[in-house]
Nucleic acid binder design. Structure first.
Lengths: 67, 67
DNA sequence: CTGAAATGTAAAGAACGTTTGACATAAAAT
DNA sequence: ATTTTATGTCAAACGTTCTTTACATTTCAG
């Protein structure tokens, strides 16, 4: 599923490692999600949205070209 | 994680089986999620929100008493 | 240019999400 | 009261999410 984690993270000048720490996962998990290897769990999606200051449906683009 | 699937589904007079069909999963999956056995995948969360006419963050209540 | 920080990637395994098939109880309809 | 529809639950199997460890490549500050 498409997401805007990479651009949002860069806007806030966070590294993958920093975002990982803030959301309680590993750097590799953030990297995999940014690069569309797999979708996060619902809980992690909420944590990412929370840290990045967006709603889940704004951070993950399901509507168009959905999944 | 808390969710309002049960009440929303009932408002729309859908059975668990009907909601399952509309979201492309089995009845047992809907039942388990309604009864908080586990959280759905992000994709299924979006499908459920779509069918029930709510946003993911309205259907799943992460903010208060979060996860 | 050199070194440090950031990113990409991979394999093995633990934990979670979903299916299938089945059976049991509850609720609603006839 | 009997049948049908809806819900709860369980176990085995399978695919997905995430961790750990490790190494390679890219980016950037000095």
């Amino acid at each position: 599923m498409q997401n805007v984690i990479n651009s949002t993270r860069k806007q806030q000048k966070l590294s993958q490692a920093e975002l990982a720490t803030k959301t309680g996962v590993t750097r590799q998990t953030i990297n995999a999600i940014e690069n569309d290897k797999y979708d996060p769990s619902l809980d992690l999606a909420f944590k990412l949205a929370d840290v990045l200051g967006l709603r889940v449906d704004q951070l993950f683009l399901w509507g168009d070209r959905h999944d």
